[in-house]
Simulated scan of single mutants.
Amino acid sequence: MTLLHPIVRGGLLALVCFSAPAVAGLLTDPDPEWKEGEHTLPTPPREAALREFFVSSASPNHFYIDEDSIVVAEDGVVRYTLVIRTSGGATNVTHEGIRCATGSWRLYATGRAGGQWTAARDEEWKPIVDNAYNRPRSALSEDHICDGPVPPRDRDEVLKRLRGEASTFMKSGK
């Protein structure tokens, strides 16, 4: 058995103690009775409906949300289709949801050639953490979809935000 130096052991303990509540807090549900509503997968994205949004200057990829697919549902989930085009020419299509109340996201399906959807195997909600993999979701939730834990009023509000037409209310932070 390898014993850790007391300083390393203390540092690891501090890391666990301080980061565990932060991660656990990301998925604390303010409404423990919440139930996800039913939804249907949208039609495949149309080129004319793709709206590019900024994710990071460090990424060579281009990120789009399919405006036709945006739904602000009664269960508080904002569902959308995300299209990522890599610098190498690959295109990734996913249908996802963001739940502002918990700062979490879920993958519903991945797009296939010919406009087919393949249902996701993992149905778990995951915290939106601002890292390379989650950066598109973080950018969407922070810049276009959520007001902290509050979802937008409706689909039109999300479209206005994506198009840079956010209301004076949103821009002033009041």
Rank of each mutant, 00 (worst) to 15 (best):
P60I: 00
V83G: 01
D130M: 07
D31I: 08
S19Y: 04
K174A: 04
G37F: 05
E47C: 00
W125L: 08
A24H: 03
K174E: 06
G37L: 02
A20M: 14
W125N: 01
R153Y: 07
S138I: 00
I7S: 13
V71C: 11
M1R: 02
L3E: 13
L162K: 13
V78D: 11
E96N: 14
G111M: 09
V8C: 06
H5E: 14
Q116R: 14
E123K: 15
W125T: 00
A48V: 04
A120H: 13
K171L: 06
H5M: 02
P136F: 12
P136L: 03
V129Q: 03
T102F: 00
L26G: 07
L140T: 03
R106Y: 11
G97K: 05
P30Q: 13
A120Y: 14
G25M: 01
H144L: 05
Y64H: 12
P151Q: 06
S172I: 12
R112P: 03
M170D: 14
S104H: 01
S59R: 14
G88C: 05
A109F: 05
R9D: 12
Y64A: 06
V71M: 13
A49P: 08
S172G: 06
I84Y: 03
T2C: 11
E47Q: 10
R79K: 02
H62W: 14
E142R: 15
A14I: 08
Y133T: 08
V78I: 15
A132W: 04
P30V: 03
I70Q: 08
P151G: 11
I128H: 04
V83W: 10
T86H: 08
C17F: 06
N134I: 00
N131T: 02
V55Q: 06
I145N: 03
T81A: 05
R137L: 15
L107Q: 09
T81M: 04
F54I: 03
I65K: 11
R79L: 05
L4P: 04
I7N: 10
W117T: 10
P152C: 15
R79G: 14
E157V: 14
F169H: 13
M1V: 11
E142G: 10
A58C: 00
E67Q: 12
A22L: 15
R106I: 15
L41Y: 10
S172A: 07
E96C: 10
H5K: 06
D75V: 08
V93I: 11
A166M: 15
S59N: 09
D66F: 09
P32T: 07
